[in-house]
Design a protein around this nucleic acid. Structure first.
Length: 880
RNA sequence: GCCCGGUUAGCUCAGUUGGUUAGAGCGCCUGCCUUACAAGCAGGAAGUCAUAAGUUCGAGUCUUAUACCGGGCACCA
């Protein structure tokens, strides 16, 4: 039996329990238990190259609350930790930290070692692909350690034996298996077509990674000639794409342009002859009602071009600069190639933004092919508010560039995917509509290839013709036994390394998969789909996917896609969505706004339990303010657990001897019975809340009951438990205290894992499951099935109310609460007095009323139906 | 334009199927060293439940509309 400390030192205690839990292995998944008794969590793998954020603490705590409850319910918990280290964020971080850039044409240098450079050093070193990948791996390892340290301090009950990283061998293997399975099922294809392209990262991006940003654009009215005479005026914000114009369109019903349909327009500057045709997407209300279609200004252009059969005029290159163009022949035919070339000479090589200005100048000067006008711009450009698509991590607008990419077919399956969403339970339920909205709005297949280096390679090669050109229509796929494979270091099946990149040989696919192509497989990764069928059957489909709402359209959606395509299954039964942390201005807290607080500092200052309490108060899905006021309340609750437990255990040790406390069969006194009666409700409500993932409601009901237990029950039972003789009354008090405290420690254990474990260890720790409060059985009303129900429902409240009146009188009289009462009379209805009678003696003792100086009077209840309490305080107080 | 949340005390939030006088904590004010806890305890002040109409014997709760805040989707020459 340990000595009970007087003060709580959270840093020491938290470290102690972190180590013990690890040593005991109480968070480990047991592979021998069946699916039915297992609770499986699809833990979000954080982007390790991002900053540790208080938002992480918030949402990971939510998962842990649910997990800890399920563990106490006896479930075998599968709660792994994954790290999302592959992909762009890591590449960016490595480029910045080490000042390196990948040049895939350089050979591997085995002597090269990554070194951090000084912030002032702006130089950039080029390294080979493999050196670059090594550097990325090194940096992510450091980052992962920082996360792990925070997770352990926060008390997340993760199974550290079950870890994965999205770039590790296992994840590469599963990702490639997934790809090959989709090839087999004919759900992927590669095609050369216009794709959204980030000109800075020089990679394709998927629809889900695109965000709209408002921008101030300029409408340019441009004068086009009409073949056979006449002119028309189109409005555009992208004059720099004029050379890419392939047609001019207006709405089929637009009166103004009926005569022009079927004719050809002549573009200014470049003299291209383009058809004038009707198109439904032209809005007569907007601009001049007639517009140019370019390859490609926006997604409408792409769509219209696809059904037009016209050739592409690509003028924007992969770096966002205007490409060299030869005028005079298809597709850049011109009625005046010389003039076109002169104009283009001033544009070629410029960025889109620079070209916009220069184009306007050129148009204003001499661009027109219309008789009687030298200028092709009758008016100055006018400002217009527009919305432009950006890659979510990018700084410049996306362009549509024609490239060869791999796609997963999702557009064909919108209905099926919506149905999958309906089979899953969303918490809160309204989050389902975000998923449904997204699926309904899909307009592109899922582009999974990225022109990056630190990612999972495609297990694909292409045969080279005698001309050395790859045949993309006949890709060579890896055999599953080869996985994971890097097609740039391993030759294609049936070829030798000498045949790489030579005519008649083969060439490896240089692209890597998008991060989401891997993280969409977290259930399959954890369950070893395709690798270990038995393990897979024990872990899949999973129970719960915790995540935040901004990645419903990516992580949740793609995971649902993969589970459906591979096995026609839902990946998990429940999705639980955490909200965001808002700063006091109600804006999302983010690194860029500079208002991020370091999580480690918070834990040090307030204790892990206090921070967990704050997170636990937020309902699922609700955005929550960063509020130190709530940390304080959490700390107060933890300290209260500490002090109340000290008191209860001191009473128990004194009255019954350390460790051998009276059991619940001794609970015979009406007050104690009434306390048990109240607790039955609390136990039921808390469990019901946890079953529906509403940890916040569970906390609320347990917390409130605990304060009542401390402020009222402990006060009322105190004097009886002080008694020196071993009477049934005292035994009942001690039994009530012991059961009550133990029950509260369990109810609060998910929220305050450190404090409750600390207190549990003083006297309640036992054998087997009872070694830790966190593996002990969740409270059940079965434990107190022998304790009778209270005779009156209101007994406990009556005691609290009358004692409250006594305390109020003393306080208003500026006397201490132990001040003696000489006389007391309580007037109330028959019914109220019946409720009070069994606990009246406890009330008198707690109120320090002189024995035999109290009376109860049956009368009309007061207007407020409260007890009418009249008392006379002692004049003097004896010094003790 | 379509869709989803939210609006309750100065602040942060509860408020089940409609049911007496709308709750808690923080903050504020007053008092109290009380054989667990001053990191405490007791008490107090403080709300036109965003607005309007409706349903009802009765609305914070249900319906409709509006306003504001936040978010999602679509469109965006």
């Amino acid at each position: 039996m340990s000595e009970i400390p007087k003060k709580y030192k959270h840093l020491e205690v938290e470290e102690k329990w972190g180590e013990k839990w690890e040593k005991w292995g109480i968070h480990s998944w047991d592979p021998d238990r069946g699916r039915d008794e297992t609770f499986v969590v699809d833990t979000p793998p954080p982007t390790v190259s991002g900053a540790l954020h208080v938002g992480h603490v918030f949402s990971y705590t939510h998962q842990d609350l649910i997990v800890r409850y399920q563990r106490m319910k006896g479930k075998n918990i599968a709660y792994p930790m994954g790290w999302d280290d592959n992909g762009l964020p890591t590449e960016r971080r490595v480029q910045n930290l080490l000042g390196i850039q990948c040049n895939p044409h350089l050979p591997y240098d085995k002597d090269w070692k990554p070194e951090r450079k000084k912030a002032s050093d702006k130089s950039v070193e080029e390294v080979s692909r493999l050196n670059f990948i090594e550097a990325c791996s090194g940096i992510t390892e450091e980052d992962e350690q920082a996360f792990e340290h925070l997770w352990r301090r926060l008390g997340l009950s993760l199974d550290w034996n079950q870890q994965y990283a999205t770039i590790d061998e296992h994840c590469r293997k599963v990702s490639q298996l997934s790809f090959l399975d989709l090839v087999e099922k004919d759900q992927v294809y590669n095609v050369e077509s216009p794709t959204m392209w980030d000109i800075d990262f020089k990679t394709a991006v998927a629809q889900a990674e695109v965000e709209d940003r408002p921008r101030n654009g300029m409408f340019h009215d441009i004068r086009f000639g009409v073949e056979g005479g006449g002119e028309l005026l189109i409005s555009t914000t992208r004059p720099e794409l004029l050379a890419a114009c392939i047609a001019v369109v207006a709405h089929p019903t637009d009166e103004r342009y009926q005569d022009l349909f079927g004719k050809f327009a002549i573009t200014p500057l470049f003299g291209a002859r383009v058809p004038i045709v009707p198109a439904n997407h032209a809005d007569p209300e907007k601009g001049t009602g007639i517009l140019m279609v370019c390859t490609f200004g926006d997604s409408m252009d792409v769509e219209w071009w696809k059904q037009s059969g016209l050739a592409v005029k690509q003028v924007i290159g992969r770096n966002g600069r205007l490409l060299p163009v030869e005028f005079g022949s298809e597709p850049f035919a011109s009625i005046d190639p010389g003039k076109a070339e002169t104009a283009w000479a001033r544009l070629e090589g410029l960025t889109a933004n620079q070209a916009k200005k220069v184009s306007a100048e050129l148009l204003g000067e001499e661009g027109s092919f219309v008789d009687g006008h030298s200028s092709a711009m009758p008016d100055e450009p006018r400002p217009v508010e527009q919305v432009v698509k950006f890659y979510e991590k990018g700084d410049r607008p996306l362009e549509f560039v024609t490239t060869r990419q791999w796609f997963v077919k999702i557009l064909d399956y919108k209905e099926e995917l919506k149905k999958q969403g309906e089979k899953i339970k969303w918490h809160p339920s309204y989050m389902r509509s975000r998923y449904q909205n997204w699926v309904e709005g899909l307009n592109q297949d899922w582009c999974i290839s990225r022109q990056r280096y630190f990612g999972v390679p495609f297990p694909v090669w292409y045969p080279l013709g005698s001309d050395g050109e790859p045949d993309f229509s006949a890709p060579i796929f890896a055999d599953p036994e080869m996985l994971p494979v890097d097609p740039l270091s391993t030759p294609a099946p049936g070829y030798s390394e000498e045949q790489r990149d030579v005519p008649g040989g083969f060439s490896g696919e240089p692209d890597v998969m998008d991060t989401w192509a891997t993280s969409s497989l977290t259930p399959q990764i954890q369950s070893h789909w395709g690798v270990d069928p038995e393990k897979h059957s024990k872990l899949f489909p999973m129970d719960v996917r915790p995540q935040s709402h901004e990645i419903i359209r990516t992580w949740a959606f793609y995971t649902i896609v993969k589970a459906w395509m591979h096995e026609r299954e839902i990946p998990w039964k429940h999705v639980v969505i955490s909200g965001w942390i808002l700063d006091p201005d109600r804006k999302k807290m983010s690194k860029s706004k500079g208002n991020v607080v370091t999580p480690e500092d918070l834990l040090t200052e307030w204790s892990s339990d206090a921070i967990r309490y704050w997170a636990a108060r937020a309902r699922l899905g609700a955005d929550t303010a960063f509020d130190p006021g709530v940390f304080k309340v959490g700390r107060r609750l933890a300290v209260k657990v500490f002090n109340a437990s000290r008191f209860v255990i001191m009473q128990l040790d004194r009255g019954a001897g350390a460790g051998s406390y009276p059991g619940v069969e001794n609970i015979t006194e009406p007050l104690d019975i009434a306390m048990v009666g109240k607790m039955r409700k609390v136990i039921n409500q808390s469990a019901a809340a946890f079953e529906s993932f509403d940890y916040a409601a569970a906390l609320q009901v347990s917390e409130e009951a605990f304060w009542t237990f401390c402020d009222h029950y402990l006060e009322l039972v105190k004097i009886r438990s002080y008694m020196d003789e071993d009477t049934p009354a005292r035994r009942s008090a001690l039994a009530g205290l012991a059961w009550g405290l133990k029950t509260f420690l369990k109810l609060l254990a998910p929220f305050l894992p450190f404090m409750t474990e600390e207190v549990w260890s003083w006297r309640f720790s036992g054998e087997g499951r009872d070694r830790s409060v966190h593996t002990s059985a969740w409270p059940s009303i079965e434990e107190v099935s022998e304790v009778p129900s209270p005779l009156h429902e209101e007994t406990f409240n009556a005691a609290v109310e009358v004692l409250g009146e006594i305390r109020a009188t003393k306080t208003q009289d500026q006397k201490s609460l132990r001040w003696p009462v000489n006389r007391l009379s309580v007037t109330a209805s028959r019914e109220q007095l019946d409720a009070l009678a069994p606990v009246f003696d406890d009330v008198l003792m707690a109120g320090n009323v002189v024995p035999d100086a109290a009376e109860t009077i049956t009368g009309e209840p007061g207007e407020d139906r409260k007890f009418l309490v009249v008392l006379e305080l002692a004049e003097e107080r004896e010094e003790s």
